[in-house]
Design a protein around this nucleic acid. Structure first.
Length: 204
DNA sequence: TCACTGATACTCT
DNA sequence: GAGTATCAGTGAA
């Protein structure tokens, strides 16, 4: 079942944990691609130097962050890559959750084709994980681009998140976030969450 | 398996 | 013009 607006109407930290184990669904080119969310990061604009919206900054690029919960925010980074975020909270509150890694469930053949031009059976274990164990990798695997920016995950039929059994607290690991060394004290916030012992997590 | 580094283009100052 | 919420390739063990 597709998650409702209600699910997203909470703060980013809670949503980050709640999203673990849920299933990201992408329909593209007549294919159905599904992946279990295994790693997330919270970004809270008001207090977080690592957030694009820190200190109330508001530009056209980050405008989706201020939108209502449940819309997508896809941004371009390092000249080559996309990252996919889910917006949390209410309108005009800049909170979001970065999806860092997924575990492919359905459409693996197609994702493998996109990423390596080979069938999954031809890949080594390492290559198989490499399909989606990182924020930009999962975007490539699922063909998420800037065209999917500002998409409503509750209304859309091409990009949404399905409900799945909750992950127990015991299996959620909190950790420091990644790739934000410039953010001073904010880089030490334990705002990254991942599913314990899941091989698809980008970094332990 | 791990550490290091270049690629690359979009956004804000 | 500078900086960036990253990745793939390389080389050494």
């Amino acid at each position: 079942m597709k998650l409702s607006h209600n699910f997203y109407s909470k703060d980013a930290l809670t949503l980050s944990k709640d999203l673990l184990g849920k299933v990201l669904v992408r329909k593209v080119d007549g294919q159905v691609l599904k992946g279990k969310i295994v790693e997330t990061e919270a970004y809270i604009g008001a207090i977080d130097k690592a957030s694009h919206a820190y200190g109330g900054r508001r530009t056209e690029r980050i405008e989706p962050l201020y939108g209502k919960g449940g819309i997508s925010y896809v941004y371009f980074i390092y000249g080559m890559y996309f990252c996919f975020n889910v917006i949390a909270g209410l309108k005009d509150v800049a909170e979001g959750v970065l999806i860092r890694a997924i575990e492919p469930i359905e459409g693996i053949d197609y994702m493998s084709q996109i990423r390596t031009n080979k069938k999954p059976s031809e890949l080594t274990r390492a290559q198989l994980k490499n399909i989606s164990n990182g924020p930009s990798k999962l975007c490539m695997a699922m063909k998420i681009t800037k065209a999917n920016n500002w998409e409503d995950l509750v209304e859309s039929e091409e990009l949404y998140i399905e409900d799945a059994p909750e992950i127990s607290e015991d299996n959620i690991v909190e950790s420091k976030r990644i790739g934000i060394d410039y953010a001073e004290e904010a880089k030490d916030f334990l705002w990254r969450f991942y599913i314990k012992d899941n091989p698809w997590v980008s970094k332990k």
